[in-house]
Design a protein around this nucleic acid. Structure first.
Lengths: 323, 323
DNA sequence: GTGAAAGCGCTAACAT
DNA sequence: ATGTTAGCGCTTTCAC
C-alpha cells in the first residue's frame, strides 16, 4: 500500500504538501495539486487511518453497544446508525453486551483503546456508568434505554404503553393481562406504566406478569384462558404467545386480542398479523448517530430527545380498518 | 489515559522494558515485572491499540461484510463471528453491503485503511474479487456465498435442497412449487439444484418461480392454489407465504404443506410452526472466524469446509412427530 | 536483564 | 506556497 511519502516522492513535493492537498488544509498551488492528484491516482494512495487516528487521538470509528443484535429491533437500530455514520465518513464497530456488565465494560474499553471517536449504547447496567464514561473522555449517546445523566434518544414508551391499552379497551377488552419486561430497563418500565395508567383511567381490570421470552410454554395456557386481551412488551413475545394461543384452540382476535410492541418486520407477515406499536428503530439509530457526531463537532444538541410512536392496527385485534 | 511512558516513569524503568513485560516478549526480571504490574494497576494503563497497529501494520480487528444484517440469519452469523473473535482477543467491524458492489468495495477499503487483520464476507459481487483482495494482501474467508477461489465455509445447501424436496414428497405432496432465490448466489443456487434433482428422482411434478421477499402479495394466490406443497428458499419468505395462504383460507398443512430454509428463531413460534432446514448460522460464523484467525497465524486450513444441515419437522408439514 | 533510539504513516507548527 | 521537523504511543533491533 502506498504511503504519503511515496506520493510525495512521485510528485516531487514534500509530505507536508501532500497532506495539505489531501486534507484541503492550508495553501497548495493549483499546479502542484494536479501533480499530487495524479500521483495519488497512479499509486492508488489511501491515507492510513491508523496513523491519522494515532496523531489525532480520535478515529473515524463509532462504537455501538447493543444488548443483543439477535433482536430484530436492535438490528434495525444498527442499520440506522451505520447508514448515518457512513454518510459522514464514519464507520461502526458493534458489540453485544448480552446484558452482562463485564462485557459492557470490556467493550467500552475496546472503544477507548481503539481511539473510537465516541459511542452509542442502549444497555448500560454498570453502576456509575456516566461517571466512568466521562472519565474516559468519550462522547456518548444513550439509545432507547435511558439513564438521566447522558445525552439520550428514545421513543415515547409511556405513550406507547397507553396506546396499547387504549386500543384494546376500545376494541372491547374487559379483562386484560399485561405481559411486561424486565423493569430495570427504562423502556420496558415506561411501557408498563403507560399501559397501567391508561387502564386505571378506563377502570378496566387487569393482571400483570413479567415474562422473559424463554419462559413461554404450554404451562401458561391455563392462565391465558382467563383473559380477553394481552398487552405484550415486544413483538417477539407477542408472536410466541399468538402461536401458543392458536395451538391451544383460542381464536385471535375473536376469543382474545393481542397487541405487541416494536413493529418488527415479521409482525406484518404472521397470521393473524400483529397489531403493534411502531417504534421507528431505524430512525432512532440515525438520530442517535447524528447526535453523537454533532457532539463530536462541538455543536449544541438536546440533552434528551423523545421520538413519537403510533399504533398499527392489524388482524390480532378487532379493529375494522387494517393497514 | 496513561501511556507506556507514564508507566515507565512511574516504575523507574524504560519504555522498552515495560513493553517487554506487557507483551511477555524478551527478558524481564521478576522484581521489575512486579514494579511494572503495580504501576499498570495504579495508573490504569491499557496499551493504545492504534499505536500498536500502526507499528504492526495489523490491528486486532476483523472486518465482517454481510449482505444485510436485518436478515436474522446473518445476525446469528455475526454473533458467531463476534464470539469467536472475542475469545481470541479480536473485535469486529460490521459492514452491510446491501448487495451493492460499490458499498462492498468501500467497505473492503475501509477494512484495509484501518489495518484490519483480515475479513470475512458473504457477499462478494465484485468481478475479480479474489484478485482484488489478494492485491490488498488481506486474509480473507468467504462465508455462505462462495466463489471458488477463496477460503470458504458454507452449509451443505445442495443437501438442504434435497431434504426439503424429499420431506414434502414423503408427506404426500404430488404437485410442488419451488420458490427460489436469486441464482447468482451460490447458496440459493445449490438449494434449488438439490430440490430439483431430488424431485426429478422421485418423478414428481413441480413448477419453479423466483420470488424476492418484497414481491409477495395477494396477486400470488391464484397461482398458489394449484399446489399441495411449497419449497421456499428461506424462512422469511416461507413465513410470509404461510400468512398469505391462511389469510385466503388455505389450511396448512392439510391443503398445502410448506417447508422453509434457515431455521431462524421465529420459525418455531409461528402458527403453524415452520418445517425447515436447520443451518447452523452461529456455528458457521464461529468456524469462519476461527479459520480466518488460523490463517492469520499461518496455520494450514482447509480451502473449503462444508457444514452439515438437517431438516426440522414442524407443523407446516404433515409429519407425525414434531420436535 | 535493560535502555536508547529508530520508525510505523500521518498532521501541524514553524520556518522559509 | 512549500519544506523541515517533531511527535502521536508503541515495538523492536541493537548495544551494553
Amino acid at each position: 500500500m502506498a504511503t504519503i511519502k511515496d506520493v510525495a516522492e512521485y510528485s516531487g513535493v514534500s509530505v507536508a504538501t501532500v497532506s495539505r492537498a489531501v486534507n484541503n488544509s492550508g495553501y497548495v498551488h493549483e499546479d502542484t495539486r494536479k501533480k499530487i492528484d495524479a500521483a495519488i491516482k497512479a499509486l492508488n494512495y489511501r491515507p492510513n487511518e491508523t496513523a491519522r487516528s494515532l496523531y489525532n487521538k480520535k478515529s473515524k470509528i463509532i462504537g455501538l453497544l447493543l444488548p443483543d443484535i439477535s433482536n430484530p429491533f436492535f438490528t434495525l437500530v444498527a442499520r440506522g446508525v451505520e447508514d448515518a455514520a457512513l454518510q459522514r465518513g464514519y464507520h461502526i464497530i458493534i458489540g453485544n453486551s448480552d446484558q452482562n456488565v463485564e462485557k459492557e465494560s470490556r467493550y467500552i474499553e475496546t472503544f477507548k483503546v481503539n481511539n473510537c471517536a465516541g459511542f452509542i449504547s442502549s444497555t448500560l447496567q454498570m453502576i456509575d456508568a456516566s461517571q466512568y464514561i466521562s472519565n474516559l473522555g468519550m462522547a456518548h449517546v444513550t439509545l432507547d434505554r435511558t439513564d438521566d445523566t447522558s445525552f439520550a434518544v428514545e421513543a415515547d414508551h409511556y405513550k406507547g404503553g397507553r396506546l396499547q391499552a387504549t386500543h384494546l379497551v376500545e376494541q372491547g377488552c374487559r379483562r386484560l393481562l399485561v405481559v411486561y419486561g424486565n423493569q430495570k430497563f427504562s423502556s420496558f418500565k415506561k411501557r408498563f406504566e403507560g399501559a397501567r395508567d391508561a387502564l386505571g383511567e378506563f377502570d378496566v381490570e387487569f393482571d400483570a406478569v413479567e415474562l422473559a421470552s424463554d419462559e413461554i410454554d404450554e404451562s401458561l395456557m391455563t392462565q391465558l384462558a382467563d383473559y380477553d386481551g394481552l398487552i405484550c412488551y415486544n413483538d417477539l413475545v407477542a408472536i410466541q404467545l399468538l402461536g401458543l394461543l392458536q395451538r391451544y384452540g383460542q381464536r385471535v382476535p375473536d376469543d382474545i386480542q393481542v397487541v405487541g410492541y416494536d413493529d418488527i418486520l415479521i409482525s406484518s407477515h404472521t397470521y393473524p398479523s400483529l397489531t403493534t406499536i411502531h417504534q421507528p428503530a431505524y430512525r432512532l439509530g440515525r438520530i442517535a448517530c447524528d447526535q453523537l457526531i454533532a457532539l463530536l463537532n462541538d455543536e449544541k444538541i438536546d440533552r434528551y430527545m423523545s421520538i413519537d410512536v403510533h399504533l398499527i392496527a392489524r388482524e390480532s385485534t378487532r379493529s375494522e380498518k387494517h393497514e
